[in-house]
Amino acid sequence: MPKPLLELICPAGSLPALKAAVDHGADSVYLGLKDNTNARNFSGLNFDAKALAEGVRYAHAKNRKVLMALNTYPQPTTLKRWQQAVDTAATAGLDAIILADPGLMAYAMKTHPHLRLHLSVQGSATNYEAINFYHEHFGIQRAVVPRVLSLPQVENVVQHTPVEIELFGFGGLCVMVEGRCLLSSYACGDSPNTFGACSPGHAVRWQQTPTGMETRLNGVLIDRYADHEKAGYPTLCKGRFEVQGETYYALEEPTSLNTLEMLPEMHRIGIAAIKIEGRQRSPAYVAQVTQVWRAAIDAVKRNPATFKPQPAWLTQLDKVSEGSMHTLGAYYRPWK
């Protein structure tokens, strides 16, 4: 079978979002279960058994794939639940599961040898040795690479591994070499890797005050927005802090990743799939973003040499973006 090229992977936090992704041209949809076995653990979000069955049926009827994110790290006392989630995925007919924990990979490989395994971005593998290790030991067939490598670095990885490489194309940014960030633990005791969110709903408070809208994480003030300012997600990394007498975005400014203009390069390098971030978002977002990326990927496949992002696409994507600008992230940076 030839290696896939620029498959479009879209997020779904609910059945309507899954259908929106399929209807607007996603090749695959990724989703998670209703607990902390995945990194979008928010109240009311995600799939129960019934929605999962209907989602798989809907996507498969239209020849699309469904992937399940099981990308948090089980603890000794909760391991069973993570293993059951792997079983659920296998019985429900999922096309692949996206894992970060090697123990869970071993379980999946032994218990469900035919289930396809992807390495999650939370696995934090940034070089081909690491990716090939997962391939040799657990039969990982695809790896999602953290959003910290430049495109030449990604190319180097692609050239030295049989594993398909998937990149983030659009959406929220996570600066901490995904899977290695513990920032939220300091504020509220929940880390993204075990709790499944770095802005847990129970810890977030927004409040309009005379001086602006305040965002707090477990009481810790992380930002105050004046009325005209755009807001970002309530994560610590996107807060403004006082450092040596100056208050500014000390870690990262709220911006969205948008790599539309790099599509011809990704096409040339042989990137297997492009992932759209945002399982926490609504079906309206999924429909809008999927539509744009479908058109763009089709265009680049028709003729990579003449590809140019249409202004209407960029406007549409900017409209739904976090922060007031978009960035090419680390994919484009001269230093290594």
Binding site: K230, A231, Y285
Partner: peptide, 12 residues
């Protein structure tokens, strides 16, 4: 269902 709540939130 024409609008995404997060988008509205970002835009205040």
């Amino acid at each position: 269902r024409l609008e995404d709540p997060d988008t509205l939130f970002f835009n205040r």
